[in-house]
Computed example of a mutant assay.
Amino acid sequence: MCTSLTLTSNAQHHFLARTMDFGFQLEGKPVVIPRNYTWKHQKVEQKTKYGFIGTGRNLGEYFLADGVNENGFAVAELYFLNEAKYGDTEQENKVNLAPHEFIMWLLGQMKDISELRERITEVHLIEEAIPMLGFVPPLHFIVTDKTGETVVLESDSGEMLVKDNPVGVMTNSPDFDWHLKNLNNYLSLQPNNFTNKKIGNYEIKPFGQGAGTFGLPGGYTSPERFVRAAYLRALVDTGETVGEGINSVFKILDNVTIPKGVNIKNDGSIDFTQYRAVLDVTDLTYCFNPYESQEIFKITLNDTLLNEKQPLEFDYDSSFKMTDLSRR
């Protein structure tokens, strides 16, 4: 589970946003991976060309679920159950990566989507379990850059494919092309009420405001969240300032955020939104909101952070807070 979207605000800031929905407690923190940092994938050392920030965890090597680098190139990974296919063995003359290592490579090497299109054939994803989970996570990826262009990376054929994303939304299985076709089922959705109609001599009227959204799916399945996010993204008022734009993105995420207890997996674990993030790829700002709190924590990439010698993790207070206006 997870929902992701991109959005360009009236202030001409471009955002990548996501919910991180999972049944296993990931315990991720915002972390900066600096320039020229050496890490290993499949026992091969790799040095980051660019520094970046995202949410991740140190498992011997860092594993990030999303992030934006110093060029404004941003990516988020989402679960792709029963669809993702990876190689069984490594290939010569390829960058062999486990699926959970792919984001580290992308953010450390890519300047923009144009370069990604040219270099995607360098990569070969292989069946390699993530230590924390003990299995190979089936993943696909949403990617954007400062131009606002958005693509999806999927390996449903065994090879990594770059797919244009004209609606700026991605959820989970089925494959992305299926989700685009499914939008054809929702042509009637609109922000305005439907007009009155007559059946014989009897006039039928909307019960009230919102009649145009009748049929907008409200569940937490991947297809329902995709349709809901696509509708809201297409129509939301993004405001006039950067802050208003970020607030608008979080309002969309509110509609696909999964509370604890309402979505139980077959093994009894609770699938819920562990954190939400909005990445401003224009200002290189990472906004992080943990489940336990309404507070948003912000970190902006700068040369001091990018030139650190080692990754820098950011702790935060996730306790729920309220401002008491009755105190003077």
Score class of each variant (00 low, 15 high):
T147H: 12
L325H: 11
D175M: 08
V236N: 06
D280P: 09
V227T: 06
S157A: 05
E83T: 01
N36Y: 13
I270E: 05
I126W: 01
L64I: 07
V95I: 15
R225H: 05
D280N: 11
T273C: 11
I113M: 05
T147S: 15
W105Q: 15
V227W: 00
F272V: 08
Y286W: 12
V123I: 15
G261F: 02
P259V: 08
L153N: 03
F24S: 04
N302W: 03
K260H: 10
L26G: 05
K111D: 14
L301K: 11
E159G: 07
S9Q: 03
V242H: 02
N307T: 11
K47Q: 15
S9R: 05
I130E: 13
P131C: 07
E154M: 02
D280C: 09
L59I: 13
G218L: 06
V95P: 09
I53W: 00
L312E: 08
E27D: 15
T89G: 04
A129P: 14
N96E: 08
E244C: 02
P191N: 12
T147V: 12
Y86I: 09
D112K: 01
A234L: 09
L5I: 12
W105H: 09
F226K: 07
V123N: 06
G243E: 14
L107Y: 03
H13V: 02
T282D: 11
H179D: 05
T150D: 11
T38M: 12
G60V: 02
L301P: 02
K85R: 09
I258H: 03
L312W: 06
A76R: 04
A230I: 10
D324E: 13
I246Y: 00
Q209A: 11
F80D: 00
D164Y: 13
L279N: 03
I126L: 06
T241S: 15
R233L: 03
P174V: 01
V167S: 00
L26E: 13
Q46D: 05
E118S: 15
Q109I: 11
V152Q: 01
I204P: 01
L106T: 04
L161T: 09
F297Y: 15
E128F: 02
F226H: 10
